Every structure is written in structure tokens, then in C-alpha cells.
Amino acid sequence: MSLPPGFLEELRDRASLSQVVGRKVIWDNRKSNQGKGDMWAPCPFHQEKSASFHVDDRKGFYYCFGCHAKGDAISFVRETENVSFMEAVEIIAREVGMPVPKQDPRAQAKSDKRTQLAEVMEQAVQWFRLQLRTGAAGAAREYLAKRGLSEKAQAHWEIGFAPDSWQGLWDALKAKGVEDDLIFGAGLAKPSTKGGRPYDTFRGRIMFPIRDARGRAIAFGGRAMDPNDKAKYLNSPETELFDKGRSLYNVKDARAAAGRGQPLIVAEAYMDVIALHGAGFEGAVAPLGTAITENQLQMLWRIAPEPIITLDGDAAGQRAAL
């Protein structure tokens, strides 16, 4: 069957090759470096005592310097389990919790919609960035300056501002011809329950784009400017792009930093990650909720064998760590 564009790439992103291969081999711990995803073992495809079978967990490929077997997680499952390509895909998808699309036209339509949603999210990133330069964002700029964020840092993190208006982003996206269902589907606006116009999800907040391991903008986190706001931090609702329990703030750059040997540090919130990065700790991430989920723990362990948990010492931070 034909799979929608992007599905296999996301499956390979979620699946840890070392975990898939690790069920069939015994790693040579003297030769392997788990922190860098550099793993060695005797080859499962031919008889040998030396560890000539190499797994590059970060790139997602294996290669045997003895028999020259090579491939990715899917080909490994195919060869070791003697199954078809689609059966191997289904085995790995079940392990990482990804439903395999059915063979019908709607699968392609769903993939196309995800691409469209990602494009709308990028438009929102740019719009929020522009709003940070307006007069309405004076207090937001002042707050960021007090927190030590230079304009260069703000640009690096793509920090923006959501004005305290009901339809600011909605009107901007509609003016560009974006369809209603895509704005709703991206979690950027909500329909009125009183029969009025749709309203923006984020209002009166400093905006932090949340990107996935591929670098796509999938959600936003917004910090309230009003100290009396009940929700100091507000995340996007879950969408076809955004699964809060499977996402980490700054995961793409942190994974690259960990690959260079930097420690993986789990902080409480966006500003903590940014502060750590500014202090030279580029391998910092933050969960996007009140607790670290099992899926997030798996993501962390795939990046580094010993992530450092530095959540706040208050009750909320302790609950999140537990």
C-alpha cells in the first residue's frame, strides 16, 4: 500500500534504532557510546565474536563491517523477523504508538492537511514576531529586557507577542486567504459559543514557538502579561500536529547539542531553557505540562543516557518530576 508523505520519516524519528536492534544483540559496552548514539555489537546477520556491527542511533542507520549488511529500523525488522515491509512498519508503529494510515484517499488528504497546518503555523510565528515590534508590545519588550533577553536572543528563539485583542491573528490570517478550518485545526483560534466571531486562542501573551524534532512549528506557548491571569503559561491545544505528551521545547537543538557531548538538562519552562542556553548549556529542554510523561522520558533517554532533571523545587515541580 502507499503511505502518505512524511509518515515513514516521522516513524523513523520516533523509533529508536538502538532499542529495535537491542532486542537482538548484546552491545559491546567498551566500544559503544550510548550518549552519542554510537553503538557496537556482534552482527546478528552472520556469526562472529568481534563487534563489527555498528548502529548510528542519531542518523537511524546500521552497518556491518563484516558482512556489509546495512539499513534502518524497518529493514532490520524485515530481516530479523522475516516479515514484509508493511508488516515491519506496523510492528514498529505499534511500539511507538503511531497508527498506520489506512489505504484510502483520506490518508493522503490527512497528510496534505498536516502540511497545510504547518504552513499556517509558520505564518503565525512571523505575525507574532512582527507584533513584538509594535507599540502595544512595549510592556512585553520591557519584560524580556529585564529577563536579560537581547534582540539577538529574541530572534534566535523567535519570540513574539499576541496583542490583547480578540481577532488580531484571525483577521491577519483571513486577509491572507487562510481557510477557517485550518486556523481552527492549528489551534490558533476558537469558535464563539455565543454566535459571534471566532476569537484568538492567545491574547495578551509573550509567544514562544514550539518546534518538533524536524524543526516544524507545531504549537505555541504563551506567557501572560497580566499578573492576575489564572494561566501564567498557556500551551496550544492538542492538534493533528501537536501532542503535548510527546513534545519537548527545544528538542531539535538540544538533541544536536547532546550529540556534541553537552549534558541534556530538563528545565521547568521556556524561560529556564533560554536562560540555560544563554549560559552555555545548549542541551536544555522543557516539558509542556504539569508532569513529565512516559513518552517524554523515552524521548529524553533516546537523546542521552542520563538526562539531568532540574525542575523547580516547589510542589508543582516535584509533582512533575515524579
Rank of each mutant, 00 (worst) to 15 (best):
S75P: 10
E48Y: 14
D38Y: 08
F45Q: 09
F45S: 05
N29C: 11
K36Y: 14
C67E: 08
C64D: 05
T80R: 12
K59E: 12
N33T: 08
G35K: 13
V55Q: 09
S75L: 03
S75H: 10
Q34E: 15
Q47E: 08
K31E: 15
P42R: 03
V77E: 10
A73G: 09
S84C: 10
P44W: 01
V83H: 13
H46P: 00
D72L: 00
G35I: 06
R78E: 11
V77F: 07
F65D: 07
P42G: 01
Q47G: 00
F45P: 00
D28K: 11
S50Y: 13
A73P: 09
F45A: 05
D72W: 02
I74S: 06
H46W: 09
D57A: 09
K36E: 15
E79R: 04
E79N: 05
G60Q: 08
K70T: 02
T80H: 10
P44A: 00
Q34R: 13
R58I: 03
S75E: 06
G60S: 10
G66E: 03
R78T: 02
C64R: 11
V77T: 07
G66R: 14
Q47R: 11
D72S: 01
V55A: 05
N82R: 04
R30K: 14
G35V: 05
E48D: 06
W40K: 10
R58E: 03
K36Q: 15
A73D: 12
K49F: 10
D72F: 01
S52P: 07
P42L: 01
K59F: 09
F65N: 12
P42D: 00
D38P: 10
D57P: 03
C64E: 04
R78C: 04
Y62W: 04
K70I: 01
G35Y: 10
S75D: 06
W40D: 12
H68F: 14
K49N: 10
C64I: 03
M39N: 08
K59I: 03
M39V: 02
F61Y: 09
V55R: 09
T80P: 13
S32F: 13
G66K: 14
D56E: 11
K36W: 14
S52T: 06
N33K: 04
S50F: 11
Q34G: 14
G66C: 04
D57W: 06
C64P: 08
